[in-house]
Design a protein around this nucleic acid. Sequence first.
RNA 1: GGCCCCAUGGUCAAGCGGUUAAGACACCGCCCUUUCACGGCGGAAUCAGGGGUUCGAAUCCCCUUGGGGUCACCA
Length: 479
Amino acid sequence: MTVRLRYAPSPTGHLHIGGARTALFNYLYAKHMGGDFILRIEDTDLERNIDRAADEFAKNLGWLGIVWDEGPDVGGKFGPYISTERLSIYEHYVEVLKEKGLAYHCYCSEEEIAAERDAAMAKGEVPRYSGHCRHLTATQISEYEAMGRKPVVRFLAANDQELRFHDLIRGELVFEPSGLGGDFVIVKSNGIPTYNFACTIDDHLMEITHVVRGEEHISNTPRQLLLYQALGWEPPHFGHVSLILGPNGKKLSKRDESIVQFVEQYRDMGYLPEALFNYLALLGWSPGGEQEFFNKDELIAAFTLDRVHKSGAFFDAARLSWMNSHYLKQQDAANLLPLVQPLLTDDQVQGLSNEWLTEWISLYQEKISQLDELPQMGASFFVEIPKLDEEANSMLNQETAQQVVKSFHEQVKNTALWTEEHIKPIFKTVQSETGKKGKDLFMPIRAAVMGSLHGPDLHRSLILLGQARVLTRLESVIK
RNA sequence: GGCCCCAUGGUCAAGCGGUUAAGACACCGCCCUUUCACGGCGGAAUCAGGGGUUCGAAUCCCCUUGGGGUCACCA
């Protein structure tokens, strides 16, 4: 039997790194086992649904390199893959449960339930639905209806045995039935099923074999187990992945601004999908060896659930950054060009060929850890005369530096060709003319031409700049 | 608070009863280099505490402590 896993986000925001990692683990395991990976949208919270969010999830998941075999856009034989398009399916199973006497209408208002809960809490007891509406008479029901109350449907959780399941990551997990909170809601008063219900129905009908999800779902599992039991279904295997922690040591909150946590933001900053993919795979999972860099196929080959960590992991932005700089170095500058172009203004790229820009990228490629550092770092190439920074300025105020610059200027002016082979001898000549070498030779020229003592390879920079512009820049600092 | 989960350096982590407790990021030195970076070499830094079990415990068990998750008509 082939393995089937799914990622089932609710379209209430952007894809964040925690969700992306959960999707990634599901994907990697499905592919490792030669099975299917399914994307399903759980949009049962009508109020919080955000337009286009589902498309964004798909877009960003796709960007990361996660591909699904079935989903809202690609279809599949277990569709539809969006909860709100499956309402009639859920209705059917509500009827099934009602016929078995395991589901009933509850007319208690949210206020009444809240009052019960608060009372229980005040007494230090576990909140638990009282079962008030379990056995309503026909008259009571019509009274409630006459009052205009809209019922929810509750599942009759009469279970009094402990619930247990073998978690793929954590091992045997056991729950006391008293902690469940009594009969829980499976259909909200607006007629839409709750997560626990929809999820159970969908996972079963879609023949999901392994449910790998965040640790925050551990406590939902016993309720879902009850549902599987009531429906006479075999539950899938469950595995709960630990949380990704923010700087405060708590579960990442989407509202926490201290950390960049949406996939799209990383894309915009110039992170490569391979780097994020690689980093996320290694967060909370380890193949055990010393290898750090893995491509997708290697990860698929290596990924197993039993090596997923039980403890939470801090999101280490510095490590991601390091990993991205590695992937950036690996790339051909030409491949980076389309990613860099959107980061440059029309003004900057005016009249510049792709070849020129590619060379410009390759000049800085190994110095950056994200692509959006490039425009700033390489800005001096886009202006006629760069502004001298403090260090460069004070260097050029020195008489010895002026000598070097003047001599260099003279040579540049008189050279006919402007290639690496012609530039090298120029430095030789300046060296013998001024008696300067090493730093004393190169730094004044770098300062004069680039406006800074730090920067990429000087020879290549000069060539890219072009003879005319180099001359202009030299003249601008000669006193 | 109830229930549940977790615990190796600052961070990611290897380790599954016998190791000088890997490796990486970050950090600090040094080297390479016309600068910055890259790279190379080196350094500092970890088994939360206490009990057991065992000839032997980072590894197994218990307790404590600490952290986290969850207690919705959100997922």
